[in-house]
Structure formats: structure tokens, C-alpha cells
């Protein structure tokens, strides 16, 4: 088993863990945190796949894709957090449950 394959599979496990919490958490802040774990898991897989040829050259293209992905992720996280703060200001709630809204 090669180094890159270990990390690729680790990335998938982390993305799966993130997905589970993304779907099951009700607290929105925790959802966003879980979303960041999904993203990092995918990036881990992508970066590792760049070194999939054991003695071959490192493919720079996935690296560039992940850099773009990291920037997109931080942008989306910032928007989500700003929205969540505003939502909390308005409703005092951190979940989507209506009964907690007042």
C-alpha cells in the first residue's frame, strides 16, 4: 500500500465522517464545521491522487484544483458564518427548528 493511497482513503473516511455529522447535526455551527471536514477530506483525496504513480512525476494539476477548492471553501464558510450570526441575531436560535425560534 503506497503512501498516497493511505492518505486518499483517509480523506474519504474523513469526508464520510463529515457527511454524517453534516446530515445529523441540528446546530448550524456544527453543520458548518462538519462541512469543512467534508471539504478537507475531499482535498486530501485529490492531493494524494496527484502522487498516485509511485515513481512517476507529481501531477501539479490536482494541487492547483485543491488550492482553488480551499479558497472557495473559506469563502463559503465566511458567508455561512455571517449568515448564521445574523440568523442568531434575528431569532436567538442556532437550529432551524421553528419552536426554538422565538
Amino acid at each position: 500500500m503506497s503512501t498516497s493511497l493511505i492518505y486518499a482513503l483517509t480523506g474519504i473516511v474523513i469526508a464520510g465522517l463529515g457527511l454524517f455529522h453534516y446530515l445529523s447535526q441540528r446546530n448550524i455551527l456544527r453543520k458548518i464545521l462538519a462541512g469543512n471536514f467534508i471539504g478537507t477530506g475531499i482535498f486530501l483525496f485529490l492531493v494524494s491522487s496527484a502522487a498516485r504513480q509511485v515513481d512517476g512525476p507529481i501531477d501539479p494539476v490536482p494541487h492547483a484544483l485543491v488550492l482553488t477548492g480551499i479558497v472557495v471553501a473559506v469563502s463559503a464558510t465566511a458567508l455561512l458564518l455571517a449568515l448564521v450570526c445574523r440568523y442568531h441575531d434575528e431569532t436567538g436560535s442556532l437550529t432551524f427548528d421553528e419552536e426554538n425560534d422565538e
Binding site: L44, V47, S48, I58, V66
Partner: peptide, 11 residues
């Protein structure tokens, strides 16, 4: 650190 291990120091 993992990314240094898969030769991605930029990342």
C-alpha cells in the same frame, strides 16, 4: 504534514 508527505508543500 500529510500533504508534505505526498509532495505537496505548496498546499
Amino acid at each position: 504534514i500529510a500533504w508534505v508527505r505526498v509532495h505537496a508543500p505548496d498546499l
